[in-house]
Amino acid sequence: MGKQHYLFLAACLATAALLPDPPASATTPEQCSGTALELGCPNVGGSIEGDSALLNGDLTLVGAPGGSAGGSGGSAPGGGNGAGSPLPPMPCEEVFAGLCYGEGQDKPGDGTVSPSIPPLTLSDVAAFRPQAPRQSMQPDGWMVVGLPTNIYARTGTHIVSGTLLGLPADVRFTPVGYRWRYGDSSAARLTTPGATWQALGLREFDATPTSHTYRAAGTYVIELDVEFAAEYRFAGGAWQGLTGVLVVPANDLVAVAGSAVTVLVDRDCATAPHGPGC
């Protein structure tokens, strides 16, 4: 290692010695800008000649007499015109080790200062509203007592963009659970949204993964809440998951259940044995 490199290393160590103890975890960009950024981050540069070094015109370290150093904004004692060869920039993380990084947080490795952001919770993304889910049923608005009624949800994974902690961010919502209350004192939590009979390749009144069978005539209100898992990312970065789920209500369905003989059909069971109620 040459004399210039030794001097530069000494300058860096002296600079670090003059700094206050770094915070254990800086949580905002402002906190970082008040420490590392004003003290030469992301790069420490300057020039060197002889046995003296000048860092960014702010701090002069003098070695053996007779040398000289220079850089913008200052000069070193000992003679000379202040001209020197440029020093290669030193990454901030090598000079100000541990400053502006939370414990266990990866350093970017590109010489920049990355503020530490504490783990977020669902309450932090409350301003990001998922799209309201919808539910539908077959038949539409009525049921046959004793036969499956196909009830299904219409929703899916989607992304909502906005600002989070003052930074551009995206939140991705993924439906993971469906809580149905059928209005007849029964309920179910399912992990599939269901689909139409046609999409499932089934006949009318066939059972489906989300169907429900009513046992008594009456008018029923069918309610649905959808559980969404949430993830967030800043400026197109990697997705970070959040613990818990966000529960969002869907529209209510009001339907009438009747016996087979009260259901309107286009032909009788003798002609159409597979018709409703037959």
Score class of each variant (00 low, 15 high):
residue 98 G to P: 02
residue 138 Q to P: 03
residue 187 A to W: 09
residue 274 H to V: 11
residue 207 A to Q: 12
residue 210 T to R: 03
residue 139 P to V: 01
residue 238 A to Q: 15
residue 132 A to Q: 14
residue 211 S to F: 02
residue 131 Q to G: 11
residue 182 Y to Q: 03
residue 123 S to Y: 02
residue 93 E to F: 02
residue 257 A to R: 04
residue 177 G to K: 04
residue 151 I to M: 05
residue 263 V to Y: 14
residue 252 D to L: 09
residue 148 P to F: 03
residue 237 G to Y: 10
residue 244 G to Q: 08
residue 170 D to H: 08
residue 36 A to P: 01
residue 74 G to S: 15
residue 33 S to T: 09
residue 110 D to K: 12
residue 271 T to M: 10
residue 39 L to V: 03
residue 18 L to I: 04
residue 196 T to P: 00
residue 252 D to C: 00
residue 264 L to G: 12
residue 84 G to H: 08
residue 35 T to H: 14
residue 17 A to H: 13
residue 145 V to E: 15
residue 164 L to N: 00
residue 212 H to G: 01
residue 159 I to E: 15
residue 271 T to I: 08
residue 99 L to S: 14
residue 150 N to H: 06
residue 181 R to E: 10
residue 19 L to R: 13
residue 166 G to R: 07
residue 77 P to W: 05
residue 20 P to H: 07
residue 55 L to Y: 10
residue 24 A to E: 15
residue 242 L to I: 04
residue 163 T to K: 13
residue 158 H to A: 03
residue 28 T to E: 08
residue 71 G to D: 15
residue 258 G to L: 10
residue 195 A to S: 10
residue 168 P to R: 05
residue 63 G to P: 07
residue 14 A to H: 08
residue 178 Y to N: 03
residue 7 L to V: 04
residue 237 G to Q: 13
residue 68 S to G: 14
residue 84 G to F: 03
residue 48 I to E: 11
residue 77 P to N: 08
residue 32 C to Q: 10
residue 8 F to P: 00
residue 266 D to V: 09
residue 254 V to C: 04
residue 146 G to Y: 04
residue 145 V to Q: 13
residue 63 G to M: 07
residue 262 T to K: 09
residue 104 G to A: 01
residue 24 A to N: 06
residue 141 G to E: 04
residue 128 F to P: 00
residue 75 S to Q: 13
residue 16 A to F: 05
residue 130 P to T: 00
residue 276 P to N: 00
residue 39 L to W: 11
residue 34 G to P: 02
residue 43 N to S: 14
